[in-house]
């Protein structure tokens, strides 16, 4: 009986949280015109979300690509189909690994920074001060950061994919001796524009989700050092789970 009541309470809590996220999103959309009239604010956030994540994205992309090249080579050489390595690496990067890993890295690098920044601004009354100055922090602070993330993630994903394919090329062709021409021609043979479209749709959805979670957690953090710390952790956890769930849903819709 007590257990049932507890589950009920948890469920009610989760539904309330979902509701507050939706409400938050609507409020933010209302404040969008303000942000869009100040592209400079968004540009700075694209810099913060994109440029500052570049090193980790490129490094990770290259190594993920190399691993894909190595594993792919191992599997295909058992089948005597080494020529398919390029196609397999490109497909797995473009359709799955690129969008998912980029979103997870983004949550860890830029998402946590966004949450901490907004949470700290709240804790130090900077957001309140703006309200008193008759400036909506949703438009001035939250919306540009959301847009910055939303725009940066698809580009980061494209960069991750390209570097990853080069990583697979490096291992497959340079180290393992897969035929250079076969690597690229088989890739072009099997990857089509639909695969790339799928990757872009995913990265847009993941970028939106990751950015929304990050700014929401920051904006609703407790006004204490501990509250901001907890919110940062939640950003990573919630984004990771959300991205994996979304990934399954989008894949099943698009396949």
């Amino acid at each position: 009986m007590g257990r049932l009541a507890q589950i009920g309470r948890r469920l009610a809590q989760a539904i309330r949280k979902l509701g507050s996220v939706v409400l938050f999103l609507l409020t933010m959309l209302q404040a969008m015109p303000y942000a869009l009239r100040r592209p400079r604010l968004v540009t700075v956030q694209i810099h913060n979300a994109g440029v500052l994540s570049l090193v980790i994205i490129m490094t990770s992309g290259f190594f993920v690509g190399m691993v894909v090249g190595l594993q792919g080579y191992d599997a295909f050489s058992r089948l005597r189909q080494e020529d398919l390595l390029g196609a397999a690496a490109a497909l797995s990067l473009i359709k799955e690994l690129g969008p998912v890993v980029t979103a997870l890295l983004f949550a860890g690098r830029a998402g946590t920074a966004l949450t901490a920044e907004i949470g700290l601004m709240k804790a130090t009354d900077q957001l309140s001060a703006m309200e008193v100055m008759a400036i909506d922090p949703m438009g001035r602070i939250v919306a540009p950061r959301f847009l910055g993330g939303l725009i940066a993630v698809p580009f980061l994903t494209a960069i991750f994919n390209s570097v990853g394919i080069l990583g697979a090329y490096f291992v497959g062709v340079q180290l393992m001796g897969v035929d250079n021409g076969a690597f690229w021609s088989q890739m072009q043979e099997y990857v089509d524009s639909g695969d790339i479209r799928e990757g872009i749709i995913k990265s847009l959805a993941f970028g939106g989700a990751a950015s929304l979670v990050a700014v929401f957690e920051g904006y609703t953090a407790d006004r204490t050092a501990e509250g901001v710390g907890l919110a940062t952790t939640r950003t990573v956890v919630v984004t990771s789970v959300l991205v994996l769930i979304l990934d399954y849903m989008i894949t099943s819709f698009l396949l």
């Binding site: 540009t43 700075v44 694209i46 810099h47 994109g50 440029v51 570049l54 490109a90 473009i94 940066a152 698809p154 580009f155 980061l156 494209a158 960069i159 994919n161 390209s162 394919i165 690229w184 890739m187 072009q188 990857v191 089509d192 524009s193 695969d195 790339i196």
Partner: peptide
Amino acid sequence: AGMFILLGFASLFFLATQTT
């Protein structure tokens, strides 16, 4: 930010022309 966007577009172009 501008250079980042350029790099992003270059990557998209690479994917669109080299892989498919």
